[in-house]
Design a protein around this nucleic acid. Structure first.
Lengths: 235, 235
DNA sequence: AGAAGTTTGTGAACGAGAGAACAAAATCGT
DNA sequence: ACGATTTTGTTCTCTCGTTCACAAACTTCT
């Protein structure tokens, strides 16, 4: 991803956190957060790394090492205080503040995303829904009205939008992306099956149904082949 | 993922392909495939690794190494025959055969997925849409009617379904997953925000909007902090 | 208080992936 | 026919990520 391996630590003497969590760890923090929330809802006050690891579906050593990048929030012989750790992870991820999000492209998928309740619940606020199709502009989804994509720049400016979600057809994706970037959005979640080109300071993550299915198909085929070879060997 | 590092090569003397493509490469093959398809549609007959790499958004050395795992399909001094390579990748992934897919959970997201045209186009056939809510059973989406989740086993058996898509709420995910597995599905694409526990022979891939947003938020926050430190330093 | 039992945090070994660099193999021009 | 040019396939090195294993630190029991 966007390398950011500069400045070891902001000010001198501030090396307990040593800014710079490995990407693989960052990707797992939200999973830990979810596991912690679920434990907390079940009124569990304390959990060991082994408990957390099973709840998150990972190896306990990995979990401990991941958490150690944030600081030393556990107690030896005891485990982790669920609510305290939950807060620390949330803070590290940046969920103690709210993030404004726009969705561009209100087709089937965009509509589903707009209705997704998990948005607001976890520190993400839908600032606007945009579409280039005049027929869709004005449609009301949830508590938002679909706006014209021409309003993009104003919406981003007025709501301090940092994250843009692209749910357009592939052909429109790069164009929308360019508009988002030039309006000042620096994080993009791309659902369109297209490769996006962006400046260095912009982060892009992609979600691609068809790629996921193809990866599964590869493994599925491989399993079938192996089975075939096994049977052939048995003859 | 599910390790499958057994048997070096099926039969003796069959070591050109040397079964066992790195996972990271497998995840990129669909991207290459898409790039090739788009070149092919533009009537490009031949492409160099550099051309393909830019179209796929990767480094050309990486692309060449990835392709070398499949065999030697290029010609030095020339490049790759677009259609030939496309076929080879499709074959390797397993797209020369059709895969039957079921979607379980026909809420907003499930409906959007069911309407997604990219399904059929690329070797994936929707065998059924299932939901546990009686009110949704019978609803017609595209050219399919929503069935009751009780029909799962029969549908999987009759259509040789290998891939299941879970688009239910988190609470129902593990239960649906267990049903899929016991019906014989061995690849699962999970859209529910839940950790699934499955036997070793089953592959699971997850797609999680909220995790993706949180990862973006982390980086976004980090960028903001860095900027802050910079300004503070300038004072 | 001290021994026994737990559980974290981390050093070290190992494995997988990325990228640079270059020899081998093809085409093209003369 | 042969040298110049292009572009692949692959080796080597480096970085990143995972896992093991264990000392340090805490609790509990006697």
């Amino acid at each position: 991803m966007t390398s950011a391996r500069s400045r070891k630590s902001g000010r001198a003497g501030d090396d307990r956190a040593e800014r710079g969590i490995p990407e693989a760890t960052v990707a797992r923090l939200p999973v830990y957060l979810r596991a912690l929330t679920s434990l907390s809802d079940g009124d569990v006050a304390t959990a060991s790394s082994a408990d957390l690891a099973t709840a998150a579906g990972v190896n306990s050593a990995k979990l401990r090492k991941d958490l150690s990048y944030l600081g030393t929030y556990g107690t030896r012989g005891v485990g982790y205080d669920v609510n305290y750790l939950r807060y620390q992870i949330a803070r590290e991820i940046g969920l103690t503040q709210d993030w404004s999000v726009v969705i561009v492209g209100i087709g089937n998928l965009g509509r589903a995303l707009a209705n997704y309740s998990g948005f607001a619940s976890r520190g993400f606020r839908l600032a606007a829904l945009l579409d280039s199709d005049g027929a869709r502009v004005g449609e009301v989804i949830g508590d938002l009205k679909v706006s014209a994509v021409e309003d993009l720049e104003a919406v981003v400016r007025d709501n301090a939008v940092a994250i843009g979600v692209i749910a357009t057809p592939a052909e429109a994706a790069q164009d929308v992306c360019d508009q988002l970037v030039s309006a000042g959005v620096s994080s993009i979640l791309n659902f369109a099956p297209a490769v996006l080109v962006v400046p260095d300071h912009v982060d892009v993550r992609k979600v691609d149904l068809s790629i996921e299915l193809q990866i599964l198909a590869y493994h599925e085929q491989r399993k079938a082949q192996e089975l075939g070879a096994l049977e052939a060997g048995a003859v």
